[in-house]
Simulated assay, not measured.
Amino acid sequence: MQFTVAYNHVCVYGWQHSEKNGVRLHHATYYETKSLCPGLVSDLLIQARVKATETLRSAFTWKAKKEASYPKKVATAQKQGKPVPLFKPVRCPSSEQCAVRYNVHTYSLNWETQTIRVSTTQGKMTLPFTVPHFSERYRGCKIATADLIHRKGKWWLHVVVNVPEPVVQANDTVVGVDLGLNRPAVTSNRHFLGSRHWKEVDRRTFRLRRKLQSKGTTSAKRHLKKLSRKQMLFHRDCDHVLSKRIVQSVPPGATIVLENLTNIREGVRHRKGEGQRKLHSWSFAQLYGFIVYKGQEQGMVVERIDPRHTSQTCSRCGHQARNNRRSQSVFHCRSCGYQLNADLNAACNIRDKFCLAQGGRPVLSGSLSDVLSSQASA
């Protein structure tokens, strides 16, 4: 497709010239992409450049991160007497079939007749469409951009719609949510959310992946590629289900408080094995995004707080000690003897910490790595 050709051309130029500014990329590549892709209208060329700019920014960020962390990995390996790990450079981003992005100038949608009119290399085309049952509630909403995707012999148009703000009376209810690896989510109003089946699926996928990697054949690599996509879709589905259950457990207009887990992988002291594998496959940022937009539909506000010592502090008396948490699931205060589920205690601390911060009073403090270590072991 010509859209993919334009996208890859901008990516190659930006990567070779270390350029990620959209305006400069537009001036440098517009006429070349226009000659390479004569069938694309100007708006589609611009959208291809915009998608390439987004990809280049992400790639350059990832490249800088890997280059900065590699000397630390070398120093750690030398200190432990292990072989120096190989440096795997970040390559120029490219796509075999880039999804075509449309804006209001290149496509129109009629909800009544269920037809869309899109710009193609052959001119304007009018096509029928059907709305999946799970998207019926968005029928009739004002449209924004859309991505045209070809998958398994079918064409899908992912339309972004503008949903009107809900009219919900705000209230003072605050619910803390403790996210973890053992229990996906525990709320301060005593909801234990998630399914044990999810962990078993991940274990089964890991065993299959390890077996295929040990083979190393062409068919095994092809299977690994399919398995990687399947696992990514499974995690996304789990995050959708979990975020929906979290929002449903909270009354409309309330405030949901989560821990700010940014850079948790760099700050945790953990051993190799299943715990490390779970930590590095944990899609907490994706889950946070799902909770935010699902909560907005219910008039909820989603906030994040500093996670330090939420797992070590007693939610009744406030005593803080690392040995308060006797095991992964049991919290027993050394001072007052209060005992309850450790994740529920952390959820209550998250709620109380946010309320204290809103009142302008001092909140819990301490080393970030201490609390993250206890969460990684969970």
Rank of each mutant, 00 (worst) to 15 (best):
Q213C: 14
Q2A: 13
D306V: 07
A146S: 00
E165M: 08
D147H: 14
V175K: 02
E136H: 09
D172R: 13
Q122I: 03
K294R: 06
L233M: 14
R101E: 10
L344A: 12
V292Q: 07
T130L: 14
Q328M: 10
V84F: 06
R277N: 09
W62Q: 14
L109Q: 04
N341W: 02
V90L: 10
T115Q: 11
N349A: 13
V5C: 11
N182E: 07
T113L: 11
R334N: 10
L45K: 04
L56D: 00
S327W: 00
R183S: 09
R236T: 08
P38A: 08
R183G: 00
V74R: 01
Q286F: 07
K221G: 10
P93K: 04
H150S: 11
P93T: 04
V257F: 01
L364K: 02
A170P: 13
D343M: 12
L242K: 00
S369V: 08
V250L: 05
K88L: 10
C333D: 02
K225Q: 14
L44V: 03
M1E: 08
V363W: 01
R236F: 02
D352C: 14
T262R: 14
K226R: 12
L157N: 02
V241Q: 15
E67N: 08
G14L: 05
N171G: 12
I149D: 05
V241L: 13
H240I: 06
T121Q: 13
R204E: 15
E303M: 15
L36G: 02
Q339A: 12
R101Q: 11
L179H: 03
F331N: 00
F192A: 06
L356Q: 13
D352Y: 05
K63D: 12
K154M: 09
K152D: 15
Q358P: 04
L40R: 00
V174K: 02
F331G: 01
P93Y: 02
R209F: 04
G140R: 01
Y288I: 07
V163Q: 04
T53S: 14
Y7G: 03
G273N: 04
R361F: 06
A285Q: 11
G289Q: 09
Y70L: 07
F134C: 11
G273F: 08
T145M: 09
G273V: 11
N8K: 01
V104Y: 05
P85H: 05
D239N: 15
A376C: 07
N171Y: 01
G194E: 01
H280C: 09
A347F: 05
E112H: 03
E67H: 11
L36M: 08
E96C: 04
V90N: 08
P89K: 05
R137V: 13
E200M: 10
Q78F: 12
